[in-house]
Amino acid sequence: MKFTLEIWRQDGPGHIGDFAHYEIADVSPDMSFLEMMDVLNEQISEADQVPVAFDSDCREGICGMCSMVINGSPHGPIPGTTTCQLYMRHFSDGETITIEPWRSAAFPVLKDLIVDRSAFDRVLQAGGYVTVHSGPKPDPNSVPIDPHVSEEALDAASCIGCGACVAACPNGAAMLYTAAKVSHLSLMPQGQPERESRVLNMVHQMEAEDFGACGNHAECQAHCPKGISINFIGMMNREYRRALSAPKDRRGHMDSQ
């Protein structure tokens, strides 16, 4: 197979980027998209040019590192998959393929197709945890958990933090990511004590980053490689509303006068 590739090249954050055109031939349909990019980079390198920088690591769809917008779709045209699990047989011979980075003010381009997703980490750090130290803990079976609840939490926890939701959202919002993190822990019994503070802190951190606002377009869900549902966004909205209306700290005010 052969392809014409239009790839976004950009030297660094703040630099002006543009599309560069490449022709690639002898592509096997069994190559993964990133393997095709490897071959392209070999070709570019042999022409004494600087290869295209792109992120990837596990190449099995779980680390969330790969991040390409292919023909306008984050992670490409096949739903429910990451870029690394996309294969060239999913494209037609002779096609022109456009490859861009995640485009979001919150994810500045570091180089070519590599973006800085540390905003996600800061959202997580704001409250995406249960405060526990390492050490002896009660037996897990002392707190039975309905398997349906646990599975629902796992549906949310399956988020791989790739950022496709932000890239896909017409508004560049990070609601699905934040909602997945919030929902996972607010469903689990272990997450209850910090339930209110968690959603408030995480939402406010999300808002402090340069993400847009949710428009309920559901593009995030449609492009999420793990198929995480916008129902979790509804759940986060509910949690947020609940947290805002939760009683204030009443310590020391528990008198009836």
Partner: peptide, 17 residues
Amino acid sequence: NARARPVKYKHAAYRET
């Protein structure tokens, strides 16, 4: 929202909106 995506996609391929 407009500030959240300063550089637009060449052609965004929407699926659900």
